[in-house]
Deep mutational scan, measured.
Amino acid sequence: MGFKLLSKLLVYLTASIMAIASPLAFSVDSSGEYPTVSEIPVGEVRLYQIADGVWSHIATQSFDGAVYPSNGLIVRDGDELLLIDTAWGAKNTAALLAEIEKQIGLPVTRAVSTHFHDDRVGGVDVLRAAGVATYASPSTRRLAEVEGNEIPTHSLEGLSSSGDAVRFGPVELFYPGAAHSTDNLIVYVPSASVLYGGCAIYELSRTSAGNVADADLAEWPTSIERIQQHYPEAQFVIPGHGLPGGLDLLKHTTNVVKAHTNRSVVE
């Protein structure tokens, strides 16, 4: 069995187990497998329904001669939608809004960016022009300005110390501490036991640490421990890039980060 097929099978099995364990909360999309990078042309966006009122959005972007996937989250909030992270750029984010209108038909009224990198804030200006209120932590807003990236308009308070959590509509926002970046936030959907790890969490097929220019490698494993301790009931975990899975993604990420750190020390 090929690795790609095995990865998709694991996603399907995880979703099936969740649907059985929580039949009222989960209505997993039966329309197909989780979209992969090879299936999404740059400039297009796919939506994948995880649970009743919960979707991931998947886009792709060219970077350094390669094409990478990027995940975000959409959560229903009454007759409105909360968006977590842009679709990595203005063109993708405009396509995301169009796809949401086509498939869901509810307005996106608020959006949260989970850290300051372009795959999370690139497209904020498109959201703002569409009347979406954009939010991020003060740290993310400051770092985005320093980096020359787009800056969300509103500040999220109460997320300055490791372990801080605040309720934001249908989700809980959690600051686990520094990891992929010093400002990275985690998003949890309690009604569906869905954990969105953003770039602080890796997919299972990833074996290298990737972009760690703004990471705190020493603190990252401790931050992941905080996530595990705060959300032990999480059933569906979405990484910032690639295929979702279960809580095993947290341990896998820790292993990859520690291996990278150990290699760096040896070198």
Rank of each mutant, 00 (worst) to 15 (best):
G2M: 07
K4S: 09
L5R: 14
L5P: 13
L6D: 14
K8Q: 09
L9H: 12
L9Y: 13
L10V: 14
Y12P: 06
T14G: 06
A15Q: 09
A15P: 14
A15D: 08
I17G: 14
I17L: 11
M18K: 12
M18G: 14
A19Y: 15
I20R: 07
A21Q: 14
A21I: 15
S22T: 11
S22M: 14
P23A: 11
F26K: 15
S27C: 13
S31H: 08
Y34N: 08
Y34Q: 10
T36L: 10
T36S: 12
T36N: 14
S38A: 11
S38W: 12
S38C: 07
E39L: 13
E39C: 07
P41C: 05
V42F: 07
G43S: 07
V45A: 07
Q49W: 10
I50D: 03
I50R: 04
I50N: 05
A51G: 09
V54Y: 01
V54L: 06
V54I: 08
V54S: 04
W55Q: 03
W55N: 04
W55S: 02
W55F: 06
S56C: 15
H57K: 03
A59T: 09
A59D: 05
T60L: 15
T60Y: 10
Q61Y: 07
Q61T: 07
S62P: 07
S62E: 08
G65R: 09
S70F: 04
N71M: 03
L73V: 04
L73N: 01
L81W: 01
L83Y: 00
L83N: 00
T86P: 00
G89V: 02
A90E: 12
A94S: 14
A94C: 03
L96H: 01
L97N: 00
Q103Y: 13
I104K: 00
G105L: 07
T109C: 06
T109D: 06
A111L: 08
A111K: 02
V112S: 03
F116I: 04
H117R: 01
H117Y: 02
R120D: 02
V121R: 03
G122A: 09
D125G: 10
L127T: 01
A129M: 12
G131D: 08
G131L: 06
A133P: 14
A136K: 04
S137E: 02
S137W: 03
P138K: 08
R142Y: 13
N149V: 09
E150T: 02
E150P: 04
P152Y: 02
T153E: 14
E157S: 11
G158N: 14
G158L: 06
L159K: 04
S161A: 13
G163V: 05
D164N: 14
A165R: 14
R167A: 11
F168D: 00
F168T: 02
V171Q: 01
L173C: 02
F174E: 01
P176M: 01
A179G: 11
H180A: 00
S181W: 02
D183N: 07
L185A: 03
L185V: 10
I186Y: 00
V187T: 02
Y188I: 01
Y188D: 02
P190A: 10
P190W: 06
S191E: 13
S191T: 13
S191A: 12
A192W: 05
A192K: 10
Y196G: 00
G197P: 06
C199V: 01
A200M: 08
S205D: 12
S205C: 05
S208C: 06
A209V: 09
A209W: 06
A209D: 06
D214F: 03
A215S: 10
E219I: 07
W220M: 03
P221N: 08
I224P: 01
I227V: 12
Y231E: 00
P232E: 07
E233S: 12
Q235G: 09
Q235A: 10
P239E: 02
G240D: 06
G242A: 05
L243K: 15
P244E: 04
G246Y: 03
L247Q: 11
D248L: 09
D248V: 09
L249W: 03
K251N: 11
H252E: 00
T253P: 03
A259Q: 11
H260L: 07
T261D: 11
T261G: 11
N262D: 11
S264L: 09
S264V: 12
S264C: 05
V266S: 15
